[in-house]
Structure formats: C-alpha cells, structure tokens
Design a protein around this nucleic acid. Structure first.
Lengths: 110, 110
DNA sequence: ACGTTAATTAACGAATCAGCTAATTAATGC
DNA sequence: GCATTAATTAGCTGATTCGTTAATTAACGT
C-alpha cells in the first residue's frame, strides 16, 4: 500500500519534484531522457525513480530495454483530496480567510 | 519565502502530518496540548512545530506564555493548486483515467 | 554466442534528521 | 523578587538519505 507520507516524502526532494513536474509537462519519458537533463549519475536517478514508483506517484512501462515513466493521475488526486478532506476546517477557515485577505500575506511566520 | 519542497518535507514525517491533521480537525491548539497526545518529549515536538511553521503550514499566535497553533489554509491551497497546475497533463490524463478505471488499481507499481 | 545499449542493484562515505536530556528564555502569580 | 508554568534552544547520538563508482541484469542486432 502506498501511503500519503510516502508521497510527501517522495516529493520532498528537489530532484524528484522536478522529475514529476517534467513528466506532467512532457508526458511519458524513458529513464535515459530523465537522466540526460539531470546533472546526476544514472544510478542516483534510478533510485529516485524507484522512490517515486514505490510511492505510487509514477508508473513504469517496460518496452524492450527501455523503462518509460509517467505520472499517475490518481496519486495527484490523492494529494489534492487530502488537502480538501477536512470539511470542518475549511468551513471554519472561510471567515478568517476572507477577513484577513491581504492582512496576513504568507510569510509572517517563524 | 516558503517553497513547495519545504511543505512536502514538512508533511513527510508521520508526527508532523498527524499534527497538521489534528489541527485541521480540532482547530487552534496550544503546543502543550499537542505534546500531551504525542508520545514524545516537548523539545522534539517543538522542533517539529518549527519545521511546520517555517514551511508556512501552520501559524503561531502568542497568548501569554502559550503558543497557539493553527493550520494556514493558504498553504493547503498551495499544495492542492500544484497538483492541479498542469492543465495539459490533466487533459491528456482524462482518457487514460477513464479508460483504465478499475483496470489498474493503485498498487500495480514497482 | 558476442558486443552494445539501457537500466538497475551493491557497497561505501558525507551530510542531514529525529530523538533524548540539560539548560535557557519568557510570562504569571504571590 | 522568586517560584512556577510554558515552551524553546543547545549539545549529543543513532539512523536514514543522497551521491559516487563498480558490478550486475536484461534485451537487441548481427
């Protein structure tokens, strides 16, 4: 089973996040093409792809000696769904959100 | 500035993910209440809260000696928006998604 | 069968992360 | 001012992560 934590972990690395973004922008790509544009050895990228695969974020299709990768839409959905999951939270947030618009720009944290 | 990677990193830890979920379910809570239900020392939790804060995921409100934490709706939005960002991907995915419904249950990875 | 191409697994080192206890900062109440 | 309560920062340790090179697996073309 692929957990939400696995997905967040997979996306918490700059290399892996850009692989996912590239696959979303360009569609299915072979491992070779992914390595080619990433300033990194093939083995290193291979492990990144494995992490993404085991998190259920990407799908691997074998064609001869090539491994073709693509993003799984269900995985993206799972993430989006999680953020929207908590109805009570969103209902309660509506007022504050609208009230404080432009008053608390993201960044007044720490 | 808080990046998407910071947010994913923050949510990639089981402790931090459940803190966020609890704050979404119960609303604003003081650090003490959060520590109380987490089998973990106060300092450890304090560092987790700092990670969440620096990622822009939670907001800290000071009231006397207490620190009250709550989830930032904008941060949740930022994550949801990212998953939906790539229109081309979603357009292209629609066919496959509908065609393979129930044929490829999430899990035929690796 | 042999060499080539595509990609992965194995083995190792440097850096980061998550936990603990001890020490510190800050506000409240007498 | 002093003790108490609330939470954080400091310093340390064990485990995990990310990258490298070397070795291995698998399919294709001749």
């Amino acid at each position: 089973m692929t957990t939400l934590i696995q997905k967040f972990t997979a996306l918490s690395d700059a290399t892996r996040l850009s692989v996912v973004e590239r696959l979303m922008a360009e569609g299915e790509l072979p491992a070779g093409a992914i390595v080619a544009q990433a300033d990194m050895s093939a083995p290193a990228m291979s492990r990144h792809l494995k992490v993404l695969r085991e998190a259920g974020l990407i799908h691997q299709r074998v064609e001869g000696t090539k491994r073709l990768y693509s993003v799984r839409p269900e995985a993206m959905r799972a993430i989006a769904d999680w953020t929207m999951d908590h109805k009570t939270f969103w209902d309660a947030s509506l007022d504050r959100l609208e009230a404080h618009l432009a008053l608390s720009p993201e960044g007044d944290d720490t």
